[in-house]
Write a protein that binds this DNA or RNA. Structure first.
Lengths: 121, 121
DNA sequence: CGGGATCCTCATGGATACTG
DNA sequence: CAGTATCCATGAGGATCCCG
């Protein structure tokens, strides 16, 4: 049986869901330029809560996209790094980021048109 | 001020959110090979509810990614088509689909490893 | 056929407090 | 510092019924 993302029972759709997750994308992007500590990530990704950051990192770790390395020191230090698999996703994800920024104006213009068109009933 | 997807107040992040949406991705992919009717989409995208399909299509239309064309006929017929802007997203989105299917096995293997590793405390 | 309107339910996710 | 634990609000999203 071939993977079919349109089929909700297929694992490839679950993978798609993870990729699509807003926080996952932002965290992967933040890790693009190398290893980061937990606090670094928390500061960089604006608006993410501790809970969601931890949850997102666990998910990425579980899916083999990120490694988690705990250093036994005081104060504690935990490093997060993209795996090879995670880096293989980087082109795609940064492509999304690029699309979002370059087409932002067009999208906003379209929204304005739609909203005024609709407000006139 | 430059678009910054990491900033939650920035529009580019909202654009990123729409791209990342699971249903949006699947609907755009379904429209890749041309115009589709509402019912076609509902049948193709497994598990989507009427509500979410309509909502997703409205969102995509508002953002200028698809056009909605109503034919005054009985029975009614509504066609959805990707705009130029929507098609410009196609490479990226099909890239996501391809990544999900080709790396599915790796991700599932990673999950198994993680789960067994964690179950042993 | 292509929705709109409702109701209802969970899961997402924020805020806060606490800990090794 | 890097989490875990808990409580709580909100809204995403499903099910159902109805209508042009």
């Amino acid at each position: 049986m071939e993977p079919d993302p349109y089929d909700r029972r297929c694992g490839s759709r679950q993978v798609l869901d993870r990729i699509g997750d807003r926080w996952s994308v932002l965290v992967v992007l933040t890790l693009a330029d190398g290893t980061k500590r937990y606090g670094d990530l928390a500061r960089r990704v604006d608006g993410i809560s501790q809970k969601m950051l931890t949850q997102t990192l666990r998910g990425l770790e579980r899916d083999g996209l990120v490694t988690r390395e705990v250093h036994a020191s005081v104060p504690p230090r935990v490093d997060y790094t993209l795996t090879a698999l995670g880096r293989s996703l980087l082109d795609l994800v940064s492509g999304l980021e690029a699309w979002a920024t370059t087409h932002l104006a067009e999208v906003e213009a379209a929204r304005d048109r739609y909203d005024t068109r609709m407000s006139g009933h």
